[in-house]
Design a binder for these strands. Structure first.
Lengths: 221, 221
DNA sequence: TGCGACATGTAACACGTTACATGATTGA
DNA sequence: TCAATCATGTAACGTGTTACATGTCGCA
């Protein structure tokens, strides 16, 4: 139940239409949450029903009529409540990491290509985030802005997004280099996978005296 | 539809029971995917029905009987297919970032506490990941292991997890410091929120000549 | 003439989370 | 004796994703 709060937080910087929100929550600039347009239109409708946001119809000359939403007092109260409640830990969930986990058992060619593609995407986001940050702090230096600027929330989340993408890029480049080096085959060609034997997955150290498995009998199926 | 592939990838390092898988996918060590036990038991059942994994019943002396699963040939083929298909981009989705985005409008006290708590959690994961990495590479140095080791997939994903948590910790510590400095109030007490006026959210630069909003009339509601 | 941006949704489905349910063994 | 670990699930619910639906305007 945090999409609603993400929407409220995004609307703190002024009125936005569903369409504008959708852009902000889209691939490009979602540094603190991501959502599809459909989710946002649905959530805005719910939030309006509950009185947490209010919309204002704006008729335009050339463009379709739109509705600009802003946070109500009740909405602010709800955000306040949410901010004070405990946060749940966040997890990585990434297709590409699943593939790299299996790297020793699958064709390296397509994997390397995907990792490099991801590095390029990260680079593009890094550029974007840097531009956004520059714009947000105006003429000021970063330290100065963070000390004295009026609104630092979005700046801080953007910094997290920037660091995340830098980490992404660095890891992707290194991973690609390693996988390439380990693939004797063509620069982007296919490779024979090295089977490799079983190392117990994710050993948790310091957790009790390793329960030696007392296997006695085993019937298949 | 990637949980199934995450399960297949996790089972590449040898047979695991549902319970063991659940631990690997749990908070502690989920460097490439996260899932709850219920999801895993359900997914294992589906995967077995489809013949992508096979289970072997193991009767134990003192512990309840368990089933150890391994990837079948069909499962490997499916993983191979998955690895070659395009990956979807991954997004951040984090409660805490939503709260920081709203930092200028909510009580700073609880927020700071949460950010610091998160930093400590990140630190704990960093320690864990470092121990796991050391164990995986055995006596070898990192570069050496990555060049010549048998199975580097899990090592690489763990490196990503490590970098992610380091980024998390650094950002949390810096953010906490900044929020503290901006809060004139007690070290962990409550603070008057500075209202701050609207800066347009997430400006996308270089995107066409900024469509000046030709608002003409506006009726409320 | 056709494509992309603007602007807003509905419906079906897949996926993830929370709550519930059971039962033996080991160590504090 | 109480909590944690081992071991496996079901059911209900909430959230996210994919596909579909509609219509205008400006630009190439």
């Amino acid at each position: 139940m945090a999409l609603r709060h993400a929407v409220l937080a995004a609307l703190l910087d002024g009125e936005l239409s569903g369409y504008q929100l959708a852009k902000a929550f889209d691939v490009g600039v979602a540094n603190f949450w991501h959502a599809l347009p459909q989710q946002l239109y649905a959530e805005l409708a719910k939030l309006e029903q509950e009185g947490l946001v209010a919309g204002r119809r704006v008729v335009q000359e050339t463009r379709p009529t739109k509705r600009l939403f802003h946070v109500t007092d009740a909405g602010l109260t709800e955000l306040e409540r949410f901010a004070a409640a405990a946060s749940k830990p966040s997890f990585i969930r990434d297709d590409l990491l699943v593939k790299v986990q299996a790297a020793d058992h699958v064709d390296a060619g397509p994997l390397i290509r995907q990792v490099e593609e991801r590095a390029a995407m990260a680079e593009a986001k890094i550029d974007l985030f840097r531009r956004i940050l520059r714009k947000m702090r105006g003429g000021l230096g970063e330290e100065e802005f963070l000390r004295a600027g009026r609104r630092v929330g979005p700046y801080l989340t953007c910094l997290r997004g920037l660091a995340f993408e830098e980490g992404n890029r660095d890891w992707c480049l290194r991973t690609a280099a390693i996988l390439r080096e380990r693939s004797p085959a063509a620069p982007d060609g296919r490779t024979a996978a090295v089977p490799g034997e079983g190392i117990a997955a994710m050993p948790r150290e310091g957790t009790a005296p390793a329960p030696r498995n007392p296997e006695v009998a085993h019937a298949e199926r």
